[in-house]
Design a protein around this nucleic acid. Structure first.
Lengths: 350, 350
DNA sequence: GGGTTTTTTGGTAGCGCTACCATATTTTTC
DNA sequence: GAAAAATATGGTAGCGCTACCAAAAAACCC
């Protein structure tokens, strides 16, 4: 019997990985492995005496739990995949930062995925990350492949959709009202007395950043309601950048020298425009007014300082993570939909 | 016998998670589970006929492999933790982007961790992420707790240390020569004829971004060798930002009105300075020359355009990921140390 | 055609942990 | 102080997959 056991012991472990296991700790502490497991996961269910002895053994042996094994046994790995369209857009980074900080504090790890604005890639990526038995998932946007929605709904674990707001989310939703943002800036420009107002953006085809398009729709409706020319749209396909902002600015100026104001889809573009105006010696807002969206800190340092609609991006991430944690800890959040809001920041560029 | 088996079948699965397993696929295809495993992982070891039948079954059932189970069995989960000091510093984001893009293409997922420049947090975080049996790890910098180094060396899987360069890395190393960067800009400023040159940075205490300090050391040595006042250092403790750049600029101007050039620890600070100079109506470089480090695209759009030392950050990430993949695929990289290089980008601000 | 090599498939036994249930111990109750 | 309830610990059986070895089938060889 003993010999047999020793034989088994010898050929355990397919491979060299000689990590300290829960069994080693159990032996050291003179208890059963399951007791160690409990001491670690639900300490209140173990007597103080044993708990101490076990903690001691953990310390001595330098035991680090194998979360993979734990995950397999209990189906849940304290990993939260965060799926965003792009990692080269600062906005998403700031949101991820908020998520990461909040989750890491609670002992969860963020698994990063980017879809490049492609819903098929999103579906494939989701399949892949669900293979990690994550505890929950954070997705960008409310538009997904039908299969993606179906799979996540059937999955039965917390899902948060971020960035935009809508009535029919998969599970929970934290975001902002994009049309509202667009309308807000448009209204501001009208109030300032501007009438010939263009909207300038990037990637606004349905395939890519449709949230920018929603802002444009909001903008357009306000102008149309005011009886002002509302179809003035300049659009590039590349991702937003200072350079594209500069180009849009120059193109719009060329095409419509009579323009009074430019409403940019985001601060990156608007910044490129202001810097281009600076270089040409044009006066903002006297020659041309410029408004943005995001509230990047850079806006304050430009001359003139940029008028923008500020959204709390980091906080959006924090809020999404908090919702997820609440659900994971069994607390049913009263409001599974959080409007993170926005604020018109009026400065000198309009 | 059959009854016994059925009995077992009935109470399998502790919990409701009724995912399709490899066994379901095997049954559907009329083969053994291990054959399905092979068809998926090493297709060339399975006959074309079976492979097709299995692919068919996978398709039909919508099977998605449980990577956790696979990871437990084979000790390796196609996860690569990337540990960086901060997610609010654009540089790291760009590196992560390069890493993520490269790894995702090869079927690996990035697990994100940030240490807030704290080596103890780094050690704890490492313990935690090693619990996921990752296939490899990417760490920032060459300075770690001794225990961290020991653990990673004993671990035996690929480790890449990024951002800086040194003789004694844990396993592989991709980075740049920080002292060289600092020296490069200092030399440029001297060549331009400037003599009263200050270095301005943030978080340069040993505890935080010691890489900035290395750049300063490089700068200082060049000035000292040229017999020029070399101890001119202005320093803040908060993280770099446009705002801090502005403040450092104004402070330095106040403290030393005779300054001819400012060498900033990075482009964020330098940008804040140029924008501050713009606002005050100061001429750059006539009144004061300004140099940076990084090569952010914003630098091109400022007036004057920013002279800087450009480092290929995205490419650094790509290179780190490639090294890791090479090792994971069994190819021993000839050069486990890659100097990613830098380039002096001379524009009008100096 | 029998033997040898090579290729293809399958059986078994874990990977390290935790859910579930059973047993032992302590505390409470009347 | 015995019975009942509550608490503390342990045993067993997987979670779903793959490493390892064995067996079967196919290809090759003289």
């Amino acid at each position: 019997m003993a010999i047999d056991k020793a034989g088994v012991r010898e050929r355990r472990r397919h491979r060299g990985d000689n990590r300290v296991t829960i069994e080693d700790v159990a032996r050291q502490a003179g208890v059963a492995p399951i007791t160690v497991s409990r001491a670690l996961n639900t300490p209140e269910r173990v007597s103080a005496r044993l708990r101490e002895r076990i903690d001691q053994a953990v310390e001595t042996l330098g035991y680090v739990p194998n979360l993979i094994a734990g995950g397999l046994a209990s189906a849940g790995t304290r990993v939260i995949p965060v799926v965003v369209p792009s990692l080269s857009i600062l906005t998403f980074i700031e949101v991820i930062h908020g998520i990461q900080q909040t989750l890491e504090g609670a002992g969860y790890q963020v698994l990063l995925g980017s879809t490049d604005f492609d819903l098929d890639r999103e579906a494939a990526l989701l399949d892949s990350v669900l293979g990690y038995s994550p505890s929950g998932v954070i997705m960008t946007g409310l538009r997904h492949r039908e299969s993606t929605v179906r799979r996540l709904k059937a999955w039965g674990r917390p899902v948060v959709e971020i960035m935009e707001l809508g009535e029919s989310c998969i599970d929970m939703n934290v975001g902002i009202d994009n049309a509202g943002v667009g309308a807000c800036m448009a209204r501001h420009l009208l109030e300032r007395g501007y009438r010939r107002i263009a909207f300038l953006g990037t990637g606004m085809g349905m395939a890519r950043d449709y949230r920018a398009r929603e802002r444009y729709e909001g903008h357009r409706e306000v102008l149309a309601a005011a009886g002002v020319e509302s179809e003035l749209l300049f659009q590039h396909d590349e991702p937003s950048s200072y350079e594209v902002g500069r180009q849009l600015f120059l193109e719009a100026l060329e095409a419509r020298p009579d323009l009074e104001a430019m409403h940019f889809a985001n601060d990156n573009l608007a910044t490129g425009a202001i810097l281009a105006a600076n270089r040409r010696g044009m006066r903002v807002p006297e020659d041309i007014a410029i408004g943005g969206y995001l509230g990047l800190s850079l806006g304050e340092h430009l001359t003139p300082r940029l008028t923008t609609v500020t959204v709390p991006r980091f906080e959006m991430g924090v809020e999404a993570a908090k919702l997820l944690l609440a659900r994971l800890e069994g607390r049913l959040p009263a409001l599974p939909r959080v409007d993170i809001g926005y604020e018109l920041t009026v400065r000198e560029s309009t």
